[in-house]
Amino acid sequence: MTESLDAIPDTFVSVDRAEGAVSFVVDESVYPLDAIYGATFTFLDRCFVFLGRGEPGQVVITLSAKKPPVEDDELRGWIGELANELLACAWRGRILEQNRATIEAVTMQAIGGAMGPPSLDELEDFDFSEEPFDDPLGIAMSWEEKYGKKEKKGESADDSGEENA
């Protein structure tokens, strides 16, 4: 049974007091899916969170009390906080895209500076066996590997040792 909440527009919001749940219909063209995920994630510790489909292009977010019943004030608080977090996540997503280079650069400097270079023990644990890159020009090959004498067909290192002896 859906009802409405005082002071909350019922165009987007419906309430099921028996379940201790509020639902919020969100337009994906206004709040991208990443913003929906970001905002609903912040409620996982307080509510049961369900995402569903409404009309095309709409996501229905339902926040349900872990222990019903809950007072209307709390339900209003959830809706208000969800709406604010959706806006913050949506806008933040755009800002981060525009400022990504700066944020990445500072983050790398901060973490790199705090970590410092690896110790000899850490280098010892590092797996160097995996080829890090393709080498079509043979730049990483030693001179001997690249230009050394090729073995004659059928001849082995042991045979050549015996001949020389």
């Binding site: 806008w91 933040r92 800002i95 981060l96 700066t102 944020i103 500072v106 983050t107 973490i111 705090a114």
Partner: peptide
Amino acid sequence: VRAVVVAGQLEGQADCV
């Protein structure tokens, strides 16, 4: 630590921007 470093940069924050 990486998450905290990213989150602490206000150039990525709504309103702060």
